[in-house]
Design a protein around this nucleic acid. Sequence first.
DNA 1: TTGCACACGTTATAGCATAACGCAATTGAT
DNA 2: ATCAATTGCGTTATGCTATAACGTGTGCAA
Lengths: 132, 132
Amino acid sequence: MTTPQLTKNQSLVFDVLEKAEGPLSAYTILDKLRDHGFRAPLQVYRALEKLLEYGVVHRLESINSFVACAHPGDDCHSHGIVAFAICESCGQVTEFHDHEVDHRLMEWVRGQKFKPEKTTIEIRGLCEACAA
Amino acid sequence: MTTPQLTKNQSLVFDVLEKAEGPLSAYTILDKLRDHGFRAPLQVYRALEKLLEYGVVHRLESINSFVACAHPGDDCHSHGIVAFAICESCGQVTEFHDHEVDHRLMEWVRGQKFKPEKTTIEIRGLCEACAA
DNA sequence: TTGCACACGTTATAGCATAACGCAATTGAT
DNA sequence: ATCAATTGCGTTATGCTATAACGTGTGCAA
């Protein structure tokens, strides 16, 4: 999928996520955009919904937060399953892809005749700096 | 870790999860236990916290729900990373383990000097019956 | 022009999770 | 035996996450 021109709200939300050091919750995004006229959660959630659809933002299920995709300009959907390492101390998120992992999971799934729609892989722990 | 004797509340919560066909939210569990004297969410969450710690219950991050571990009597902690296939139509959950997937993820993590604490793998989609 | 699709704004509500207080029972060391 | 620490429990209150339902305006194609 190619990313269409973002609307005003979508751009605002995306910019906040891109400039952030780590993942943000929808309500944190809302607070950061109050000066730009945002008043209600739905304004954020609706923008996020589209950004997720376009693949330029990821949702981190295990911490109810959102991050900008780590592949600027690239099409995220082409990378297969995305996995995340999330530091529970500093919040830093590292995104990565592993073909072999994808392959194994999809093999298993195929054996079960299960039809996958969306796959989540999230590793929570401590990044190098915080583990020291 | 070996599972200690469960307390009354822990047993009640565990029994509800075991008898359930699929994953349950904490509030659904609460409702099912009102007849047994449960009145507040914390009674459920506190029991769940222990059951998760003992490894006899899993949390499904992507749907904010809980399931009994699929390995009766067995020690879940010995299976490495647990992965789940979750049917978005009927709610059925299949639990599985894949050593190769674990291995690849842990290899990557090691390369990053990231210290993993808890890993989530959840595949949402349609089970064989529902996809038909 | 009419009808449709889409983004947007607002209010209200639903659903998920924990903080903070206090009490009772258990355990284990002195 | 006694004291202190730990653990489970009950209750109230609160905070965080997400969506339902309604209405508005705009652009565009039939």
